[in-house]
Computed example of a mutant assay.
Amino acid sequence: MNETPGTLLAALRRDLPLVQCITNYVAMNIAANVLLAAGASPAMVSDPEEADEFARIAGALTINIGTLSPRFVDGMRAAIAGAGAAGRAWVFDPVACQATGFRRRVSAELVALRPTIIRGNASEILSLAGEVSRGQGVDGRDPVDAAEDGTRRLARQSGSVVAVTGAVDFVTDGTRSVRITGGSPWMPLNTALGCSLTCLCGAYAAVADDAFYAVVAALAHFAVAGSLAHKGAEGPGSFAPRFLDALHAVTPDMLDGEAEIHRVEEAAA
């Protein structure tokens, strides 16, 4: 890799990037703590009165539709315009995009605005790719491997780096692809960790030259920290504080040495 997860983590902690997180009410506190523990600076700025202006000074923008409302959408549009004007990366998390007509319409509009990165579970990514998913609400009921072809197609169509996360994560820009293993089975039993991972993707995108490597580093950081936190935890409740500690404890050398990143050989188009 040209930009290793460890070199990007070192850059993250050196630069302390400001990340504008338009995320859902459930995730705000958790996502802020995740970014602080990892080494970035969160700002939950979403109102359309200031979202554009703030996006121009932030290092990156993340958009999450978990608790969707018309005013939230107005703030998203304003922030995306500001990020675009400033040349900032932005990340889209299509939470439960398949659940309602409103979510489907908003998701289609946001994908058309060409996010730098899209991160979701397999059911969400399948839906964005135009395929049938088994997702109900925010739960991802499809396996990651069932979404890999759709993820590649979505990446090529949208121009985004697309990450589908689960027991084994898959990242592609339509040409390059990797799988990332690690983490803990207690991670899905802690609410909003996926939403927080989206925000961490934004933090890494703020310090990376290549969004593909930014996503790989963010997912690897989560996986290594999850594996570390799992040791000694007795269940999802005791896992949660250990995970924040682990995010902070992971060093650049540890990340490069312990991350389980597997390159996927792509067939010629």
Results as ranks from 00 to 15, higher is better:
I30S: 06
A223R: 15
A32L: 02
E3H: 06
S238H: 12
A31V: 05
F239D: 08
H230Y: 06
R119K: 15
C195T: 14
G194D: 10
N64V: 03
A85Y: 02
A60P: 04
K231F: 07
A89T: 12
G130R: 05
G66T: 09
P188S: 06
T7D: 03
L16K: 15
G257R: 13
G174S: 08
G66L: 00
V73H: 08
W186E: 11
A60H: 05
A217N: 02
H230L: 10
D145Y: 14
F72P: 00
D256F: 05
S177W: 07
V132P: 00
A147D: 13
P115N: 10
W186P: 02
V19E: 09
E258G: 01
T23E: 04
A208L: 02
E53D: 11
P143C: 00
D169I: 09
G75N: 12
L16T: 13
I57W: 08
A83Y: 06
L16A: 08
A217S: 12
G82V: 04
H262I: 14
A192C: 09
I63Q: 01
T100S: 13
E49Y: 10
I63N: 03
I117C: 02
I118V: 14
N121T: 09
T181A: 12
T251W: 13
P236T: 09
V138I: 15
G82K: 15
M44Q: 13
R114W: 01
G182V: 02
G232K: 07
V162E: 10
A99W: 15
E131S: 00
E49S: 07
F92W: 08
T191L: 09
A167D: 14
E131A: 09
A11W: 03
L8W: 06
C199Q: 08
A206R: 02
I118T: 04
A147T: 11
G6W: 13
E124Q: 09
I63A: 01
P185L: 01
A108Q: 14
A146L: 13
C199M: 12
G137Y: 04
L126W: 10
A155G: 09
G232N: 08
A112F: 05
I63S: 00
A108I: 10
V161S: 03
T181K: 12
G135F: 01
V106I: 15
T181S: 14
E266M: 15
E260P: 00
V264C: 10
R71H: 07
T116F: 05
A112W: 04
R114I: 07
I65P: 01
L247H: 07
P17W: 07
A206F: 01
R176K: 12
M44A: 04
A240N: 09
R114V: 06
F72H: 13
